Amino acid sequence: MLEPGLHAVPKGHTAAIVTHLEMLHEAPQRPEADLPLHLTRVPQPGPEWYLDLFRRIGAPWLWFGRLEIPREALLALLADPGIHVHVLMKDDAEIGLLELDFRHEGACELAYFGLIPGAEGGGAGRWMMNRAIALAWGQGISRLHVHTCTLDHPAALDFYRRSGFTAYRREIEIARDPRLAGLLPRDAAPQVPLIE
């Protein structure tokens, strides 16, 4: 446990406050616009396709979790029947990623949820969240959970709360900066200073 006060973050690292949220009963669907969207499950996605979409969505927010996994472990993860990867399409363009993790009985983690830059703010996130909630609870779970952090989109935490999630735990995560580890370009997430 950290004592109150300031704590130095080593050079070459990032620090984020992580908020964990949960939903213990299926939240009602939020009103949504009639949008030309469709959500498609991708069974056993290829790692190149998956990592390309993951980077396009997550690079502005320094997502690195799937980028640091060894290839064999990523292949096993994507082939696991408990991992459900979905792509959000607008017309013929991939604009979103939804990953649901059912590997723990009775629960589902909303492991990844995001839109490509420029797709936010038009209702696509709410549209995809309505379907994410329905898909998760359709599997007979008793708990849906997610986490977000202060490096993520500034509206993410409030979006999850408006969608029916309740915060229950907070942590501080210190990690090697993925830009310095070569996982993301050095110019990714310019709003987060790169301190070498």
Rank of each mutant, 00 (worst) to 15 (best):
R71F: 00
G164D: 06
H104N: 03
V42Q: 12
I133F: 02
L53H: 07
H147I: 00
G12S: 07
H38P: 02
G164Q: 06
F54A: 00
G96P: 06
H145K: 06
R126A: 15
D177A: 05
G125W: 11
Q139R: 15
Q44R: 14
V192R: 06
G125A: 12
M23V: 08
V192M: 07
V42N: 02
E68K: 09
G58C: 05
A107G: 00
G114L: 04
L135C: 06
M89Y: 15
R143A: 02
I95F: 13
Q139E: 15
E48P: 01
F54V: 00
V9W: 13
N130L: 11
R41D: 08
V87G: 09
R41Y: 10
I172H: 06
D187P: 07
P10D: 04
Q139H: 15
E94N: 04
E94W: 08
V87F: 14
L37I: 07
H86I: 04
R169W: 11
A8K: 11
E26H: 11
L37E: 01
P81E: 04
L6V: 04
D177W: 09
L144I: 03
P70H: 04
E99Y: 04
P190A: 05
L77P: 00
L157N: 07
I57H: 10
E32W: 11
G140H: 02
E26R: 15
G82L: 01
G140N: 01
A136K: 08
R41N: 09
E22F: 13
H147V: 01
L88M: 10
V9N: 05
L98Q: 05
G122H: 15
V146H: 14
L21K: 05
E32K: 08
F159V: 07
P10L: 05
L24F: 04
F54Q: 02
A107W: 01
H147Q: 15
A33C: 04
G122V: 12
A124M: 14
R143C: 11
W127N: 11
P43Y: 08
Y112E: 04
L88Q: 10
A59S: 12
C149Q: 10
L115E: 11
I174R: 04
A111V: 01
P36T: 12
L53Y: 03
H84Q: 11
P4H: 13
I69N: 00
R161M: 12
I133K: 15
A93L: 08
P154E: 05
R56M: 03
L6W: 14
G125M: 10
R186G: 05
G138Q: 07
F165W: 10
Q44D: 12
P117Y: 13
F54D: 03
G114D: 04
I172N: 00
A33N: 13
G125I: 09
Y50T: 02
T19V: 14
